[in-house]
Nucleic acid binder design. Structure first.
Length: 270
DNA sequence: AAATTCTCCTGAAGGC
DNA sequence: TGCCTTCAGGAGAATT
């Protein structure tokens, strides 16, 4: 399921193939995603050059002289670079055709999105009010500490809130809380500055390590060339309810927090 | 305003 | 083998 490391992996995979290339055609097979794929996307994009490919939060931004294509992979989306005329599969929603390759979006669960904006993407309503990038210098323990004062939402929900910080999805929230020895249900307003600093260090560490491994492949995620990510091997707690805690050996707990499965050690995380 | 719940969707896994 | 139920989840929208 694409979280920030998977989106970053996808970005690094597709960028070299499409940057500077001119769109020769667009095929929309299944327009129904989270929002309908723009009807006139083919007209809009064809003959435009992709000037740059960037990422903001989990949005991929393909910038042209006339506007920006915004892609979101939802929870089951993947982008691949394929030879032109590769036969499509069941959930292949969209092809963007270039002279020598095809950028194909597959999204079985249709939580993803394809949007077009003429304005600067930073102004787009979905992007304008997002928190800082977790791997940027703006994301510090001090920042999280200040954001969290007078709030009592569970810490795990807090760090997964895109208005606080972007890109910390369920897998990596669980992992970084474990590494920090912090209980996911701890009210965020009660955590000390010191412990926020440790947490931020671990969020950055986990995300950076996952990017190095090409992300985590649990079900649907695949890289632009079809390979999986390998960070699964490094997971300490995610999906491991009942298994021994890697630190103390007691069985790991599982509980739903804010509609998300949460995994933690009641002994090591306080 | 902040916190919580609902919603979209499909495929995998488990129960009988 | 097959049908049913349950679960997974990003994040906007709706509700409390």
């Amino acid at each position: 399921m694409p979280e920030l490391p998977e989106v970053e992996t996808t970005l690094q995979g597709i960028a070299p193939h499409i940057t500077g290339k001119t769109v020769r055609g667009v095929i929309v097979r299944h327009p129904r995603l989270r929002w309908p794929v723009p009807k006139d996307l083919k007209q809009t994009l064809t003959d435009l050059q992709i000037n740059s490919v960037r990422r903001r939060a989990k949005y991929l931004l393909l910038e042209t002289a006339n506007g920006t294509l915004i892609l979101h992979l939802g929870m089951s989306g993947s982008l691949r670079i394929l030879p032109v005329n590769t036969p499509p599969g069941t959930h292949d929603h969209l092809d963007i055709l270039f002279d020598d390759c095809c950028l194909r979006l597959r999204d079985p669960r249709r939580f993803g999105a394809v949007l077009w904006t003429r304005d600067a993407p930073e102004q787009h309503p979905l992007i304008a009010h997002l928190g800082p990038e977790p791997l940027s210098d703006a994301f510090t323990g001090e920042y999280l500490y200040r954001c969290s004062r007078n709030r009592q939402v569970p810490l795990k929900s807090f760090i997964m809130d895109g208005k606080v910080v972007v890109g910390v999805g369920n897998i990596y929230a669980n992992e970084s809380l474990f590494l920090s020895g912090i209980h996911p249900l701890k009210p965020c307003g009660k955590l000390s500055r010191k412990r926020f600093e440790l947490l931020v260090e671990n969020i950055k560490r986990v995300l950076a390590a996952a990017i190095r491994q090409g992300g985590t492949t649990l079900r649907d995620f695949q890289r632009e060339d079809g390979r999986p990510g390998y960070f699964n091997q490094e997971l300490q707690v995610y999906g491991k309810a009942g298994e021994p805690c890697p630190a103390c050996g007691k069985p790991l707990s599982q509980k739903r927090i804010g509609q998300r499965s949460s995994f933690y050690c009641t002994h090591c995380q306080r």
